[in-house]
Design a binder for these strands. Structure first.
Lengths: 238, 238
DNA sequence: CGGTCAGTTGATAATCATCAAACGGAGTGG
DNA sequence: CCACTCCGTTTGATGATTATCAACTGACCG
């Protein structure tokens, strides 16, 4: 219950915007778990029989290949909801990047509750839709941005996420390695490093430590990284 | 009603798996429309006040920038469902690639119907979840595949989609230009062309016309393009 | 029969990956 | 307390892939 209270304080969470009764039922079927940094939360290829809500810590979701290639699909922050798929087996893996606390919801139980609780079903649909929006944003980043633009937009994103969790402050944490960032942005860790160095040398950011960044010129950083959609182009392309 | 019958014949459609009454209500609020090739179906930046089901023809969804960059997010086939977003305005545009027929559903009406029709809500959630799965697949393609691998996986995907629509046959249609394929795969049209030429010269495919491909060696094509997920790696990376 | 346009092919350039070395902070042991 | 090691990061040199620019081909259409 107190685990929930902590979680509910956050916006955009699955359980927010639910009435007391539904929340209680959800809680009744939730397994509260804690895992040490480095542990699998979702094994790639395992039966997709649960979904998760991250309560504390950081976790990463990635698609992996036998050749050792890795594409990180999402960096999870407290309050994030993950492992929703239509497939019978997970196409990706998720692991604890730091020590984490999470709620595990068995899929068949959740599907059961959902059929009698339209509000919950709706809430899940909204969450999945938001994830769709953000993955489409990532598609654009990977398909059509340069290394510098990718890194700039990533810093913007990091800052945005941390502000949303209510950490103002001049500094933004970078709670993942250069290699992780690279595997999210479709680059190498060297390219990420070079892009950061360039942004620093041009006065857009400061890097007091490897895991902290100060954004000195947000408008310019944003103009590099965050590409605006065309308002209303004349004629469709193609 | 006959427009619906045509649409319902297809698997994986929004309206499939709904009972008669719900389907009738959905139909009652659906605007059946037809649009000529080249027309906007969704204008980028417009109020996100409707969702669509494509009944016939092909449409493309893309994120566009004022600098003329374009990232195609999806190629829509008959039966596909699109323009679902959490945002108030569309971050992307969609247009008719050929003459199209579609159903338009006003978002506020649909939201209304959905609250009293759990089965429909569930159906929508499933559709959105499937889209999430496929966009995540695209993220991996853009982030971690070479040009040749991207094109190979694209051909596999085209073939897969057309088989699902029930067109066996030795030949697979390519119902979009090289530039469209390029903007989907994060490449240029020249790179797409070179990759196709290479696949042809290596005997994997035949190209009797620019808009048709014959897959001569599916296993090899698949092994190039479709990267298997790691079954169960020992220790999480990172 | 010429014109237009999508597609292909070729030459060159830019970006990013790869390979390699140096750097620096955190932790360890003398 | 300080040297040493380790590992992630940064920086440098080189190479590969893909983008860009440009020319050419062929199909379709007036």
């Amino acid at each position: 219950m107190s685990a929930c209270a902590q979680c509910l304080a956050r916006q955009g969470t699955l359980c927010g915007a639910l009435d007391e009764e539904t929340r209680a039922r959800l809680l009744a079927m939730a397994h509260a778990e804690e895992h040490a940094a480095g542990r699998w939360l979702v094994q790639p290829g395992a039966a997709a029989d649960a979904v998760f809500i991250l309560r504390a810590g950081h976790a990463h979701v990635a698609r992996l290949t036998h050749e050792g290639k890795r594409q990180i699909l999402a960096f999870l922050f407290p309050g994030d909801f993950f492992a929703f798929t239509y497939e019978q087996r997970y196409a990706y893996g998720a692991w604890a990047a730091t020590d984490v606390a999470l709620c595990r919801l068995a899929r068949h139980q959740l599907e059961g509750l959902v059929t009698t609780t339209p509000a919950l079903e709706r809430r899940i649909r909204v969450q999945v839709t938001r994830q769709l929006d953000s993955v489409q944003e990532l598609v654009f980043t990977l398909g059509r941005k340069t290394a510098l633009e990718r890194v700039a937009s990533f810093l913007w994103y990091l800052d945005y996420r941390q502000r949303k969790l209510g950490r103002p402050g001049a500094m933004t944490d970078i709670p993942m390695s250069r290699a992780d960032i690279a595997d999210f942005l479709g680059l190498t860790s060297e390219s990420v490093s070079r892009a950061l160095t360039r942004l620093r040398s041009e006065g857009l950011i400061s890097l007091p430590a490897a895991d902290q960044v100060g954004i000195l010129d947000m408008p310019r950083l944003r103009s590099i990284g965050v590409v605006e959609a065309e308002p209303v182009p004349e004629q469709p392309p193609g």
